[in-house]
Amino acid sequence: MKASFWRRLLSGVARYPEWVTFLFLVAAFVVSARLSPFFLDVFYIFDSTSYYVEIGILALAMTFVIITGNIDLSVASGLALVAVVTAMLHVQLGLPMEIVIVLSLGFGALLGLFNGLLVVKLGLPSLAVTLGTLALFRGAAQILAGDHSISGFPEWFIGADFVRVGGIVPLPLIVFIGLAVIFGLMLHKTVFGRYLYAIGANEMAARYAGLPVDRVKLAVFVVSGLMMSVGALLKVSRLSVARYDLAMGWELAVVTTVVLGGVHIYGGRGGIIGVVLALFVIGFLRTGMGVANIPQENQLVVIGLLLLVAVGLGILLERFRRN
């Protein structure tokens, strides 16, 4: 009787690994609140989101990529390249910022298309392709920008994080939530989303059933590229400068977020809600540890342990469910 209750509870949790992430979120919140009284300041919490929603925006696209059984390691360096190109188009070529925004969205999509074509048309593993473009994009950004910080953006473009909707919620957070809703609907409610899962769970069966596997994979990489642009624009707006070393090493944070959110690293399983929760787990912890003056390296250790625990727990639960 009692055993069967726990069994049922466990298998319920195993079916929806988001619950694990949710528990982590509660824990992260409590721990952070205890570390420092400043953490509970609503303004402070909202302010701090502007930094990590940029990770979150990349993580949304990464969720699509990983669910199809691929990975895109070039997101962070792609973001930097888009940022540098955006800056040069406006500052050096003098194009109006409105047009530059459109161009930079297109440029990001192009970077994604480049990844996608290499994966789909040449049949190369996405891990290898994007490991290559990770270096390539960063290198290109450095060649273009050198060691300079490029500045000179129009007033209206700078400081998106100071634009508060309803007097309290910063614009980047609104952008993220809006995108998360769109991504969530696409993933869970549309035929396209079903295609993503099918490709990740069994690409051959998807092909045999006549699904447009190649086009879907291409689309997923293009979306990833688009989100590099969105991330880049928000970041440049927040910092008011573009540099080649923006978002250095973020690809790891992005993948961590997605995996912590219960998305299976080999594809086929996971959802947007988990990823959103995971973003805030990491965000809260970082903020909490930040206000408590815990040194950066200790923070890294905590995040690393968290990832291991989450991944381990997820896989153990899955095994339990299968048995």
Binding site: Y197, A201, N202, A205, A206, A209, L211
Partner: peptide
């Protein structure tokens, strides 16, 4: 080639 094993019966028949 025929099935997506983790998918539900419903998910497979409509594929």
């Amino acid at each position: 080639h025929g099935l997506v094993l983790p998918f539900s019966v419903a998910g497979n028949v409509t594929m």
